[in-house]
Design a protein around this nucleic acid. Structure first.
Lengths: 222, 222
DNA sequence: TCCGAAACTTGCGTGGCCCGCAAAATTTTG
DNA sequence: CAAAATTTTGCGGGCCACGCAAGTTTCGGA
């Protein structure tokens, strides 16, 4: 028999990962088909051939399941960044790592994009989606800090946060407009960040009419 | 009788706003007291003297209610930005507007901050909190676009997004560390953004000893 | 001033979600 | 192969969001 090479993952571990993966995938597929509001937890569980209760052993909500793919990206990002050559300037490393990570996933076809766009309209998802991005950002900041030696922790966080901003903006632009491809946009925005957005920063403001609106009140929160 | 000057808001409108405000405030107060998980919708409603069903006429979840104060900030931000003098360079306007908006709310006392920090630990809130910030960001981008004349729409979004990044990073840093004050940090980060983060970008990775610093791991928060 | 229309509140009922608990079922280990 | 460790599952409970159909309040014109 060919040595099936059980990769050092205990059977339990493999099953667990596989189950999680299957659940996330089923959740996404069903959500794209019918809209998340028409997907009950029971449906997802059934699709995978598992009890509804088990679903909640893996995810604490269907939103989380759908978005878990986003979170998984952080693995790739971390690796890509740590794999950049030693002497390369930090920003270049980050930029290339990000771009690399996002090129790996080829551009999906139009129909798919349309369905994604529709799905994202679901308010139910926005929060969880942002949550996922925040997680990616955290890992990125950590990795940047490691890559940059003992640089200012705060600045590392700012950098990670800015990069994620660019990604988010590029992404939204990509799936909200029919024409623009994703990667070039992303690259442009990253460059813009690197140079402090001179295109906008420098220009003086055009005049705007006075605009009469009344401030209701400023709350002291958060 | 002194002319009570009914401000042109129909009574209905005033009542509505007041109810919403009261609900949001009650939600926040209770959440700070007991932790959001120990607050039922019924509690909030009772506190305000209104039926639980009515609560859901105003907010579609308690998380939303708690975070609604964050959203309200966008009003102030918009105005502050539009009120900047005509000729001022765009970035300066944005920076000043943001800083102004956040100085208006004085630094709360330690105990309060501690409770906020604890509250934010609640996973239930993260998504909604980010959602709220996203809303602020949207309005900010719109306002920037208006202020900047017909500038590239994408860049306006990027700028708004970056600014919000700085705010978030500064904020988290503020309430996660006992010492640093908020505003100076924010200002520093904004400047860093304006110049493209030279502190980090330029320096080729400072030689760091092969680096065994297992990063202590930033907190998984916000 | 008064009355009908419009808007808001409320109780009720329904469907669904999330999770603790403890009993099977399954995998690991010795 | 049997005991130990871990996962799956059914059940039950508490809560939440929301549609619907009265009841109640506010509005605005005649």
């Amino acid at each position: 028999m060919p040595p099936q090479e059980p990769p050092k993952l205990t059977l339990r571990e493999r099953k667990k990962r596989e189950a999680r993966r299957a659940l996330a995938q089923a959740a996404l597929r069903l959500a794209l088909d019918r809209g998340l509001e028409n997907v009950r937890v029971e449906d997802i569980a059934t699709e995978v051939g598992v009890s509804p209760r088990t679903f909640n052993n893996y995810f604490s909500s269907k939103e989380q399941a759908v978005c878990s793919m986003v979170v998984d990206r952080h693995e790739g990002m971390r690796e890509a960044l740590l794999a950049r050559p030693e002497g390369e300037p930090l920003w270049e490393s980050v930029k290339q790592a990000v771009i690399e990570q996002y090129s790996r996933e080829g551009e999906p076809d139009r129909a798919y994009v349309a369905r994604i766009r529709e799905l994202m309209g679901q308010l139910m998802l926005r929060g969880e989606f942002l949550n996922a991005h925040a997680e990616v950002e955290r890992v990125l900041a950590e990795t940047i800090a490691k890559r940059a030696g003992g640089a200012d922790h705060l600045l590392c966080r700012l950098m990670a946060s800015s990069v994620e901003s660019a990604v988010r903006v590029a992404f939204v632009n990509w799936f909200m407009t029919e024409g623009e491809p994703f990667l070039p946009t992303l690259e442009r925005l990253l460059d813009e960040l690197a140079t402090g957005m001179p295109t906008l920063t420098g220009g003086a403001a055009e005049q705007t009419e006075p605009n009469t609106t009344t401030t209701p009140l400023g709350e002291p929160l958060c």
